[in-house]
């Protein structure tokens, strides 16, 4: 009863609980929050995270990664698209839900739609559901990420034609063939932005004998990263600790080196797409070849990725508008047009 009253004062939210970023879209209002999924917490005496001492969440916490003193630890509570630290995720969600609601007399108790990777297990889905409940949600609905991404990319998901979506997130890459509001085939590989960062770190260590941090690797990827040889070669100056000398050194990296570094994760993504096409029923496969693959997620911003996929797979690839927010926009649109999509889109476990 009390929940209902509180629900009256709360909005319906769509949350893209991603490994790298968490986005929240309020029904009828649009995207109101786009923050990194990072929490900085204090430590207890035995070194464990102290949940009562949350120092920062989101952007502020992300700046702290790799730069924390002994009594603070910056945690990324999600790994490979699923929850790695349950309590921290709950606290983070609680903070985000609170902040999008602003000042209200009642504690917010919204209905929440959360996007989950299609390859996640029952246990992982349950963890997401419970953590949202713990964060104050009145009711939690789950939707598979590729479905939400397809709705958000404005693809004709309700038609009896196959559409293929490739969503490259921070932790996972999801490939799915969608027809008649449902997922016909989906594949989820645990390769994403994080794996690209790791690949860059190990490349730099191997070839320059220098250690760089996660944040630097991400910066390199954003500035000169590419997936297909481009006409112009871009360069970036990087600083890292030389392993032999033990002293920080500065050196220059160019985009061709990063292309080489990213070969392994990129091959994984291409293989996943090929695999999905191989397993797609022939009728839908022909639709996909005719229309092309739609690319969403942060990975779609990597220059030349669409070209690489076109060359490797031989199918037209287009990048969706504003690929970073496709998933959460899809969730938001689902909340607005529930009757159009029906409940088949939702995941029930």
């Amino acid at each position: 009863m009390l929940n209902r009253i509180r629900g009256f004062f709360s909005n319906d939210l769509s949350i893209d609980l991603g490994t790298a970023n968490t986005l929240i879209c309020i029904r009828g209002k649009g995207i109101v929050l786009n923050e990194p999924s990072v929490v900085a917490v204090g430590k207890t005496e035995d070194g464990a995270a102290n949940l009562k001492k949350i120092r920062a969440v989101g952007n502020k916490a992300k700046q702290m990664i790799g730069r924390t003193p002994g009594h603070i630890t910056a945690i990324r509570p999600l790994k490979d698209g699923v929850i790695a630290d349950f309590m921290i995720t709950e606290k983070m969600l609680q903070y985000f839900i609170h902040s999008v609601h602003g000042e209200t007399f009642f504690r917010p108790s919204p209905r929440v739609l959360i996007c989950v990777p299609s390859g996640s297990t029952q246990v992982e889905r349950r963890a997401i559901r419970e953590s949202a409940m713990g964060a104050g949600a009145r009711k939690v609905y789950l939707i598979e990420e590729p479905m939400a991404a397809a709705i958000g990319a404005d693809m004709p998901v309700s038609e009896a034609r196959g559409s293929m979506i490739l969503d490259i997130g921070g932790g996972t890459t999801e490939v799915a063939v969608i027809s008649l509001n449902g997922i016909v085939y989906s594949e989820s590989v645990r390769i994403g932005g994080d794996r690209c960062d790791e690949a860059i770190i190990s490349y730099v260590r191997r070839n320059y004998g220098t250690l760089i941090g996660d944040a630097t690797a991400e910066q390199i990827k954003h500035q000169i990263g590419c997936a297909f040889p481009a006409d112009e070669v871009r360069e970036i100056e990087v600083r890292g600790r030389n392993l032999a000398e033990g002293i920080p050194r500065s050196f220059t990296l160019n985009s061709n080196e990063i292309l080489e570094a990213l070969q392994e994760p990129l091959t994984g993504i291409v293989d996943a797409v090929k695999n999905a096409l191989e397993k797609t029923p022939p009728e839908l496969g022909s639709d996909v070849v005719e229309r092309g693959i739609v690319l969403t997620g942060g990975g779609a911003l990597l220059p030349g990725l669409d070209q690489l996929l076109m060359e490797e797979v031989g199918v037209s690839v287009i990048v969706a508008d504003d690929p970073l927010t496709c998933v959460v926009r899809g969730g938001g649109r689902y909340l607005e047009m529930t009757e159009d999509f029906g409940s088949d889109v939702l995941v029930f476990d």
């Binding site: 404005d154 693809m155 092309g292 287009i318 969706a320 508008d321």
Partner: peptide, 12 residues
């Protein structure tokens, strides 16, 4: 197929 595809094709 749809507007989203049309925009993507145009961009490419």
């Amino acid at each position: 197929p749809s507007e989203a595809y049309a925009r993507g094709y145009l961009r490419n």
